[in-house]
Structures are given as C-alpha cells and as structure tokens.
Amino acid sequence: MDILANQTVLIEIAAALVLAGAAIGFLAGLFGVGGGAISVPVFYEIFGALGYPPDIAMPVAVGTSLAVIIPTSIVSARAHNAKGTLDMAILKTWAVPVLIGVMLGSFIARYAAPEVFQAVFVTIASVNAVKLLRRGKSWQLRDTLPGPWVMRLGGGGIGLVSAIMGIGGGAVSNLFLTLHGVPIHRAVSTSAGVGVLIAIPGTVGYILAGMGKDGLPPASLGFVSLAAFALTIPTSLLTTRFGVAMAHRMERRALELAFGTFLALVALRFLYALFA
C-alpha cells in the first residue's frame, strides 16, 4: 500500500513539474522574465513535500530555476529580437557587470538563510508591481538611460539580486529600464536577453556552491536538480513562443497591468511563506 501511495505522490509531482514548465515558458515569452517567479515557488514546494528542509529546498529551487531559464530565455530573446525590440547595446554594456553580480550572488547562496531569498523576492516583486499598476510619472526617474558607469552599476545589481532570487532578471531589469523611460515592449524584450546573461553563469555558480553539500536530492549537480530540470524543459520550450506572440499583440497598458498583477501575486506568495 505504501508503495502505491509513493508512486501516486511521484506521479503528482511529475505532473506538477510538467505544468510548471508550460507556465515558465509562457511567462518567459510574455513578460521577458525567465519564469523563475513561477519555478522557484513550485520547486520549493515540491522539494519541501519530498521532505527536504528549507536550507536545502530553497537553494536547490533557485539553482534549478536558473538552469531551466537558460533554454527558455534563449528562445524568448531570439523571438523578441526577431520582432526588432531587443536592445543589443544595453546587453553589451551589462554583460560583464551582470556576470560579476551573478557570481557574487551565487557565493552568497551557499551561506544565506532561506528567509534572505524570500525577502529579496518580496521586495523586488512588490516595488515593480506597484510601479506598473499605478503608472505615475513620479515612478519614472528620467526620460533617458543614465551614463555608462551608472548602467554598469545597475547591471551588477541586477545580476546580484537575480542570482539570489533565482530568476532571469526580467523583473529587475524591467524595473530599471522603465524607471529610465524605456518603453514597456522594448524593456520586456531586452529583459529576455538579460535572462541569458544571468542564467548561464548563475547555474554554474549554484552548481559550484552546492558541491559537497550534504542532504541534496538524488540526481543533483550541486544545487541543481537534474530530474526537475528534465521534466520542466520540454513544455517550457513549447510555450515560450506563444508568450512572445501575445506580448506583441497586447497594448502597452494592458501588458503593464498584466505584468504588475503577476508580480503582486508572486510577492504575496513569498510574503506568506515568510510569516507562515
């Protein structure tokens, strides 16, 4: 009887991962995010249900999320670039600073308490959600992007925060770009490219940070669960292009409201986790 019960639980977990993959891919295309806002809480709940403590479940959820973001962000960035709205000049400016920030965030991940990950998630998602939903001119710092040094500092911060949150940086880079007058469609498209810059070194960093850690799930490479990765990827790649197509059909304000609502829900979810 116990064997049948365990098999049922494993089937339910596998089904949840497949569905999460579909949501991750769609969101990656729609909002220019890597889908980490979906995959991190889903992975966290699944590893928790399997009996892993928060100090293992949270970094594994974040590391696996970054691994999943690699292919989805590449597909999303290519699709947005084909629409002509991905700003390669911004990506070139951010490439090195983002890498430095990501590696620092991955190092912090080895020693940080799970509450640190959740608190960063709530803060960034909440600020961005309020900005997008209220859409006041007061939420715009200036009409143009800042100088190269401020841009580089911004890129480093985006990499650092995104690595701790386990996201492709879309929510953070979108906030930075729109605060400096970048139109929402261009910000979303460029944020998809940021996901590529963050996810690859972020995944490597989490693999290295988790090496030798006791109590990791089976089939893990550091803080990356290869089993969760394998179950999530197929549907995420299938749905990414649908998200891109919808993003470019939506009006600017509709896209802002949709993205803001999505981030607000994510913030509430992690706020609940902090105080539950």
Results as ranks from 00 to 15, higher is better:
residue 120 V to G: 01
residue 24 I to C: 12
residue 14 A to P: 09
residue 205 G to N: 14
residue 133 L to W: 03
residue 246 M to Q: 13
residue 63 G to Q: 06
residue 230 A to H: 11
residue 75 V to G: 06
residue 194 V to L: 02
residue 117 F to T: 10
residue 198 I to F: 02
residue 220 S to A: 11
residue 148 P to L: 12
residue 265 L to K: 07
residue 259 F to N: 00
residue 257 L to V: 07
residue 145 L to C: 15
residue 56 I to G: 15
residue 199 A to E: 02
residue 72 T to C: 00
residue 46 I to S: 05
residue 27 L to H: 10
residue 5 A to Y: 14
residue 21 G to W: 00
residue 229 F to G: 05
residue 4 L to R: 13
residue 81 N to D: 11
residue 101 G to D: 09
residue 139 W to I: 13
residue 194 V to H: 05
residue 93 T to N: 10
residue 172 V to Y: 01
residue 262 F to S: 00
residue 144 T to Y: 12
residue 222 G to W: 12
residue 32 G to P: 00
residue 75 V to D: 04
residue 187 A to R: 01
residue 199 A to S: 06
residue 142 R to M: 14
residue 122 V to E: 03
residue 30 L to G: 02
residue 150 V to E: 14
residue 73 S to Q: 06
residue 243 G to H: 03
residue 231 L to N: 02
residue 183 P to V: 05
residue 147 G to P: 12
residue 35 G to N: 07
residue 274 L to Q: 02
residue 25 G to I: 03
residue 160 L to A: 08
residue 111 Y to H: 15
residue 202 G to M: 08
residue 234 P to V: 04
residue 5 A to M: 11
residue 259 F to M: 02
residue 124 I to N: 01
residue 136 G to R: 09
residue 14 A to L: 13
residue 84 G to N: 06
residue 154 G to T: 02
residue 4 L to Y: 14
residue 6 N to I: 13
residue 131 K to C: 07
residue 106 S to A: 14
residue 200 I to R: 07
residue 99 L to I: 09
residue 102 V to I: 08
residue 162 S to D: 04
residue 115 E to W: 09
residue 56 I to C: 09
residue 164 I to S: 07
residue 58 M to G: 03
residue 257 L to T: 09
residue 84 G to F: 00
residue 272 Y to R: 07
residue 188 V to T: 10
residue 138 S to A: 15
residue 204 V to L: 12
residue 144 T to V: 11
residue 41 P to W: 04
residue 197 L to C: 06
residue 15 A to Q: 08
residue 193 G to R: 03
residue 127 V to T: 14
residue 41 P to M: 10
residue 213 K to M: 08
residue 12 E to N: 13
residue 27 L to G: 10
residue 192 A to S: 10
residue 24 I to A: 11
residue 186 R to A: 00
residue 242 F to R: 09
residue 148 P to M: 14
residue 52 Y to T: 08
residue 274 L to K: 00
residue 77 A to T: 05
residue 55 D to F: 10
residue 101 G to S: 01
residue 273 A to N: 15
residue 182 V to K: 01
residue 274 L to Y: 04
residue 269 R to T: 01
residue 220 S to W: 01
residue 178 T to C: 09
residue 184 I to Y: 04
residue 242 F to G: 00
residue 140 Q to H: 07
residue 137 K to Y: 14
residue 116 V to I: 11
residue 236 S to E: 03
residue 147 G to L: 14
residue 11 I to P: 13
residue 169 G to H: 05
residue 188 V to Y: 06
residue 5 A to W: 15
residue 199 A to L: 13
residue 13 I to M: 07
residue 211 M to Y: 12
residue 119 A to S: 11
residue 219 A to I: 10
residue 11 I to Y: 13
residue 45 E to V: 12
residue 84 G to Q: 07
residue 255 L to V: 04
residue 270 F to S: 07
residue 29 G to L: 01
residue 91 L to I: 06
residue 268 L to M: 08
residue 250 M to T: 01
residue 225 S to D: 02
residue 110 R to G: 15
residue 217 P to F: 01
residue 212 G to W: 09
residue 140 Q to I: 15
residue 206 Y to C: 11
residue 2 D to K: 13
residue 108 I to Q: 09
residue 160 L to S: 05
residue 22 A to C: 10
residue 67 A to I: 10
residue 78 R to E: 13
residue 261 T to C: 08
residue 231 L to G: 03
residue 92 K to A: 08
residue 107 F to K: 15
residue 115 E to T: 02
residue 32 G to Q: 04
residue 271 L to T: 10
residue 255 L to Q: 04
residue 249 R to P: 11
residue 270 F to W: 12
residue 82 A to F: 09
residue 175 L to C: 05
residue 113 A to D: 14
